Lab assay of single mutants.
Amino acid sequence: DNLVIALHSYEPSHDGDLGFEKGEQLRILEQSGEWWKAQSLTTGQEGFIPFNFVAKA
């Protein structure tokens, strides 16, 4: 599955970004460039995340 774990917390800075906490698990929905579309397994919310803040779970 496309699961990743957050290496750092991220505060959203643009509409459509997904904020998350360090250690949170996310499911990657789309990989494109440096911003990936993801869904939080904690909150169920979707949005874009910086790819370098996460690692394969």
Rank of each mutant, 00 (worst) to 15 (best):
Q31G: 08
L29K: 04
S9G: 09
D17F: 15
K56F: 14
F51T: 07
G16S: 09
K22S: 06
G16E: 07
A6R: 01
A57T: 12
D15S: 11
G44V: 01
H8P: 02
Q45S: 08
P12W: 05
K37A: 05
A38Q: 01
S13V: 15
A6K: 01
L41N: 03
F48T: 08
Q25G: 07
L7P: 04
G47E: 00
P50R: 07
D17A: 14
G16A: 07
S40A: 05
F51S: 15
H8C: 15
H14K: 14
W36L: 10
F20Y: 02
S9P: 07
V4S: 03
L29S: 02
I49F: 07
F53K: 07
E24Q: 07
A6Y: 02
T43K: 02
A55S: 10
L29M: 07
N2G: 08
I28M: 03
G16N: 09
G33A: 04
I28Y: 00
L3T: 07
E46Q: 12
H8W: 13
D17V: 09
E34C: 15
K22P: 04
W36G: 04
W35T: 06
N52A: 09
G33P: 03
K56H: 12
Q39F: 08
L26S: 00
I28S: 00
Y10P: 01
E21R: 14
H8K: 14
L3E: 04
T43W: 01
R27D: 01
S9W: 06
E46T: 15
L26C: 04
E46N: 06
A6F: 03
S32I: 13
E30V: 09
G23E: 03
L26G: 00
S13E: 14
T42S: 13
G47H: 02
L18H: 02
H8E: 11
E46S: 13
G19N: 05
G23R: 02
E46Y: 11
E30K: 07
G19E: 04
W36K: 00
L41M: 11
G33N: 05
L18Y: 04
I5Y: 10
H8R: 15
T43A: 01
G44D: 05
N52H: 12
S32T: 13
D17C: 15
G19R: 13
L41R: 02
Q39W: 04
L7R: 05
A6H: 02
L7D: 02
K56T: 12
G19Q: 08
V4W: 15
L26M: 08
I49A: 00
K22R: 09
Q45C: 10
W35K: 12
E11A: 13
Q39M: 12
G16Q: 08
D15R: 10
F20V: 05
G23T: 02
F51M: 14
D1Q: 10
R27V: 10
R27F: 08
K22Y: 06
D1H: 11
Y10C: 07
G44E: 04
W36M: 07
N52C: 15
G19M: 06
L29T: 06
Q39E: 08
S9R: 13
A38E: 01
D15F: 11
E24V: 04
E46F: 12
T43F: 00
E21I: 13
A55P: 03
S32F: 13
Q45H: 11
P50G: 02
L29Q: 03
R27Y: 09
E21D: 08
V54S: 01
L18S: 02
T42I: 13
T42F: 08
F48M: 12
V54Q: 04
K56S: 12
K37W: 15
